[in-house]
Design a protein around this nucleic acid. Structure first.
Lengths: 147, 147
DNA sequence: ACTTCCTGTAACTTTATTAATTACCGAGAT
DNA sequence: ATCTCGGTAATTAATAAAGTTACAGGAAGT
């Protein structure tokens, strides 16, 4: 399958709303930054809006963050656009007549959930403000190198 | 994309080698347990062999675990069949002329790696012996319910 | 030696997921 | 009234994984 970049693109989008708050925030402009299509941007915004992370007004280019960036964790963005999609997939179709095939799902599910929760705990610890701060630091480094 | 079940299927395979060690371990028999095709099983075994987890002999059905199950972690199985595939995908193609698009990959990579390492640490903590033990416990529960 | 069963791979096809595209409705601004 | 833009549905294209077919060659029994 094609690998999903929704999570990364959504973080990009939200950071863009903050950093370019003074510009015209059309889906076209945002799409140019992510290098995707405006429709994809609007689809992402639709999910972010439903998750309560941003507000939008139909017909006019006024997307806005619904709360301060310090109050939005990477995890809440992940849930908003990926739902509760598991990081590790259990093979759902194995032979129930076999000792292994009949029990492995139950067993793996537990360990996978542990691992996923560990990753999610890290995502929960980071806010979008951290991301924006780091982007600006990287940008400053870049500009310093040029001089 | 279709989500990969290689990791789960490989754990299944290795547990099968242990639990059914006394039977004929043909790729057909293993495939019947995983409910996949023998070729898929042989492909998985090829990767597990290259990673040093099992030994096989061409032409004869004698796959064997290369080390005790207590010495094989879920993480080593994951690496064997998924390589260093990241759990969270960075969008590689964003506008470098934009402050966000030009720096976000660098920033996200760090946080994604943190999260992935947390998950991997959990996987490293669990051995295949734990999995086999749990499978046998589940099976015993099942049999107890039937009486 | 011959036959049978099996592994190891390569090549190709099918299936599933995601992103991209096209198209259209209706809201808001000028 | 017109122009711009968001929201969404429907379709197409791209991509990754699993399934399938095919075949070369090893091992073991007869």
């Amino acid at each position: 399958m094609r690998v999903s970049t929704r999570f990364s693109d959504s973080i990009h989008l939200l950071a863009y709303l903050k950093i370019y708050a003074d510009t015209k925030l059309t889906s076209d402009a945002i799409a140019a930054s992510i290098e995707t299509s405006p429709v994809v941007v609007r689809r992402l915004m639709s999910k972010l809006r439903k998750a309560g992370l941003i507000t939008t007004t139909p017909g006019t280019a006024q997307p806005a963050l619904a709360k301060p960036l310090t109050d939005i964790s990477l995890l809440s963005v992940f849930y908003a656009v990926e739902g509760d999609k598991p990081l590790f997939a259990v093979d759902p179709k194995t032979n129930p007549a076999c000792i292994v095939g009949g029990n492995i799902q139950t067993v793996l599910k537990q360990y996978y959930q542990d691992a996923q929760m560990a990753a999610e705990a890290r995502l929960a610890r980071t806010s979008l403000q951290d991301i924006v701060d780091n982007i600006l630091v990287e940008q400053a480094k870049k500009e310093a190198r040029q001089n």
